[in-house]
Simulated assay, not measured.
Amino acid sequence: MARAGITAGRLTQAAAELADEVGFDNVTVSALARHFGVKDASLYSHIRNAHDLRTRVAVLTLAELADHVAGAIAGRAGKDALRAFADAYRGYAKQHPGRYTATQMALDPDTAATSAAGRHAELTRAVLRGYDLWEPDQTDAVRLLHSTLHGYVSLEQAGAFHSHPRGVEASWTRAVDALDSVLRAWPA
């Protein structure tokens, strides 16, 4: 019998915390059941399956990340907003590595449309308004920004930068400066 007080929300929060501890790929219904001291079957009254659980973690994480980024860029424009956006993104990934991995999960279109995934695009577009970019250039710039930040964060998390004497922070600063330069001089 399930322990009283288990809800879909509590399961999702616990799974997100577990993702940060053991990695998003290691979040399973069994691991979560062990965390709550119950049998796997007792969780299925709150979640459909492991995919549903992971989707819930991804949706929760996207909302957390959007809130974190929104707070960082509020009242900023141009390079200041870009730096705040990039630092908030990277900071969240460093603080919550398992949850950050969850943000890369492909969501079905309905879930993506009703989750914070759209907020991320809007926050990025808000930063890009400081560079006077409009469609279709804005979409290209959104993709450039996210792929650069995700690439850097992923390589950093994998330890790819630690064997070089140049400090990771110095390279991060230069990467954001380079993005700012590219955005200011966007090709016509």
Rank of each mutant, 00 (worst) to 15 (best):
residue 126 A to C: 04
residue 88 A to K: 01
residue 167 G to A: 15
residue 162 H to R: 11
residue 75 G to K: 07
residue 112 A to H: 07
residue 166 R to T: 15
residue 127 V to W: 09
residue 146 H to E: 15
residue 76 R to D: 01
residue 119 R to Q: 14
residue 141 A to V: 12
residue 151 G to M: 08
residue 95 Q to D: 12
residue 181 S to N: 12
residue 74 A to H: 13
residue 105 M to C: 03
residue 78 G to M: 01
residue 88 A to Y: 00
residue 69 V to D: 00
residue 143 R to N: 14
residue 172 W to F: 11
residue 131 Y to C: 07
residue 100 Y to C: 04
residue 152 Y to H: 13
residue 87 D to N: 12
residue 68 H to R: 08
residue 134 W to I: 14
residue 135 E to H: 11
residue 179 L to T: 11
residue 142 V to N: 07
residue 80 D to I: 04
residue 140 D to W: 06
residue 94 K to T: 15
residue 187 P to M: 04
residue 111 T to L: 07
residue 123 L to T: 06
residue 102 A to M: 03
residue 148 T to K: 06
residue 111 T to A: 09
residue 159 G to V: 08
residue 177 D to K: 04
residue 153 V to W: 03
residue 171 S to P: 01
residue 89 Y to D: 01
residue 161 F to D: 04
residue 133 L to R: 06
residue 91 G to L: 04
residue 132 D to G: 04
residue 72 A to W: 02
residue 148 T to P: 00
residue 151 G to H: 06
residue 161 F to W: 14
residue 133 L to A: 08
residue 184 R to I: 00
residue 84 A to Q: 12
residue 68 H to I: 00
residue 96 H to G: 05
residue 108 D to W: 02
residue 137 D to G: 09
residue 171 S to Q: 14
residue 84 A to S: 14
residue 98 G to M: 05
residue 130 G to V: 14
residue 143 R to C: 03
residue 117 A to D: 15
residue 114 T to F: 05
